[in-house]
Amino acid sequence: MLKDITLGQYFPGNTPAHRLDPRTKLLLVVLYIVGVFSAKFVISYGVMILTLIVCARISKVGARAMLRGLKPVLIIIIFTGLLNMFFTPGDPLLSFWIFHISRQGLRLAVFMVLRIMLLITGTFLLTYTTSPIRLTDGLEQLLNWMKRIHVPVHELAMMMSIALRFIPTLIEETDKIMSAQKARGADFESGNLFQRARAMLPILVPLFISAFRRADELAVAMECRCYHGGEGRTKLSPLRYAGRDYFALAAGVCLTAGVMVLGYFGF
């Protein structure tokens, strides 16, 4: 049952979007977010939507997969839309009882909903096309300058990739513990929410203990393989910018600048 959970939604592939350097993609996402926030009117939003569609086409991610990413935040989207629609003062369009919909409100609601959807689907495109390992590698490289102000960038990246590595192992273990508890009569399926939450406790305790033991053993194994921090480490597959990365970055910068200019002039 737990095996169905997929974390770090990554669709392996070999599209130009997959081949881009993770650092490039991270920077592009930042540019994209800036773009989404500076889009103010119909034309600039149109440009951003078009950008997203083109990027999705390049990375061969289907519309259904893109929209699936929106599911967990659906309530927030609806809520934001409704709030903006009903509580923005302006020229009345429709009103019944205590509800008033204004022209400005309707416009704001549509734009806000679009903005959230664009933000989420856009960032999802990054995780869809980049493996978690490459993503952590990219983050480590991009944030390398922070080492100078004593931020443990390498350690954080190493922790992240080890956490990703152990997700399947720990899920398997949870499954095993649950089966063992069920075999001895534990009941995880009935009762109200509170009772069910309490039934999970006997799973969490052994899981935590074993996770600590694993951590300890892993640390020794890493030391045995000469791990001594990020100092002087080399890479099997180091990140290298290629021509396509410069091209993608240039395109990203132009687009964002364009959208900012459009927004400034009121389109």
Partner: peptide, 12 residues
């Protein structure tokens, strides 16, 4: 070591 899972660092 004994437990193969606890000495593998990467997921490739």
């Amino acid at each position: 070591f004994q437990n193969p899972d606890n000495q593998i660092v990467s997921n490739v």
